[in-house]
Nucleic acid binder design. Structure first.
Lengths: 242, 242
DNA sequence: CGAGAGTTTTCATCTATACATTATTGGTCG
DNA sequence: CGACCAATAATGTATAGATGAAAACTCTCG
């Protein structure tokens, strides 16, 4: 795979323009706040139509690299926040990627009556839910304990799903589209119950991931996952988001 | 905030089309795998040109909501992975958002000779770096200890920066554009040094964030941040990325 | 000299069209 | 009956032109 001519790879014109401008920004040649040429100028520069330039610039603007204003021209955005694409892979894939055998066991599966949670100032009503507590193993040693609520109003199909062999996470991913999710990641000490399930001593550090998923206004599921701190970590890779 | 007329807000046509299709997918009306109308059909449906439809659909495809294939048509993507935009806010902002007073103190600032790290199979050379160890406080109680290497080859301006009052993180954000970053998040037990710095007991759970940032092939900085587990957590919000 | 109105520049969007690309489909021929 | 090939239908890319909107500039008038 020896790339003989590694220059300007993207086949399409707007992708090439985009890549070139992006490179000039990321290399530091164009600093934050700098104004870059008008569409008409670039149109001459690349000898193409304005629509093509526009497509490239719109794409850069969509990723937040540049700021476009009518009349005021286009300028390089100042790097604001550390933001990017985080991918949280499946636990199963993660375990198997490390060469271990994945095991899953549901230890509790019951219906929970409707309840209210208090989020900040306003109470939020949540309907009847199916509650599944499961333990995930890597090579017979427990790695993760997961408490999951699935709200049956929002996900009616979940009432019939069989979670004895298939974890609810993947099932939900495959069956239910979601629009928003929120994660809270924290380090906690293992409480007695957790310690017993994960076969560690009380007080050992664990990684807590609380995940809440919505579709529109409706809460689909809430999951609390507690990982053995010494057996798991999350990695997030950031890039200029394609 | 009673939205009186909540219909199709986006002003521009392609944004309206996009929003409409997106809504139909997210509401569950269109399920994963379903095929949606061809561009020509939608062009008649919205009585606009195909380019406009194309723009809307291309945008949806870019966010991964739909899959487009030539000849085979467009279909709703099956929700693959939990991926989205993660925002890691500034520590300072985070602390001040909770009403606490932010404090910063550099406890070590020295030059480190070039070194090699071993990443997987290949060794990677890293040039001379400036090493800054700092402690961040919330209301006079230490919350975070940060070990940061800044590689002077890649960031020459860092040699003269004054990190006694300004933390290196924000300084870097404001001065250096980056192209890629990788984070590793884990729960660890406080070692003796960490425990002493954070004024907690040895073994208490802490949240570890290792962050490595590149520009192109060049490593800009490596940061190891250890947060008091009981005083800090990360939150990530996911959405259909605009 | 200053404020406001008008003009110009520049980006934003939409339309219509043309051609390229590619996977499916179906037909033909061995 | 199966393998290959051509027609076809869908998306992908690019062009040119028209229209609109908003901000900055300029000019005039008080």
């Amino acid at each position: 795979m020896h790339d003989h001519a590694p220059d300007t790879r993207p086949a399409t014109l707007h992708a090439r323009i985009r890549a070139e401008v992006e490179a000039r920004i990321l290399s530091g040649e164009l600093k934050p706040g700098d104004r870059l040429p008008t569409e008409t100028e670039m149109m001459a520069r690349y000898s193409c139509s304005r629509m093509t330039v526009n497509k490239a610039m719109a794409s850069l603007a969509a990723t937040g690299l540049i700021i476009r204003n009518r009349r005021a021209g286009t300028s390089v955005a100042r790097p604001k926040m550390h933001a990017g694409v985080l991918t949280i892979p499946d636990i199963r894939a993660n375990i198997e990627a490390r060469g271990a055998r994945y095991g899953y066991q549901a230890v509790l599966d019951e219906l929970r009556p409707p309840c209210c949670v208090h989020l900040g100032s306003e109470g939020h009503h949540l309907g009847q839910s199916r509650f599944v507590r499961s333990i995930h193993h890597a090579d017979d040693s427990p790695v993760l304990i997961e408490d999951r609520h699935i709200f049956l109003d929002a996900v009616p199909g979940a009432a019939e799903a069989d979670f004895r062999t298939e974890p609810p996470g993947p099932w939900l991913l495959g069956h239910v589209p979601w629009t928003e999710a929120e994660h809270r990641i924290a380090a906690i000490a293992a409480d007695p119950l957790t310690a017993r399930c994960l076969e560690i001593s009380i007080g050992m550090p664990c990684l807590l991931v609380e995940r809440r998923t919505w579709r529109g206004e409706e809460t689909l599921t809430i999951a609390k996952q507690v990982f053995r701190g010494d057996a798991f970590d999350l990695t997030a890779r950031f890039g200029p988001s394609s």
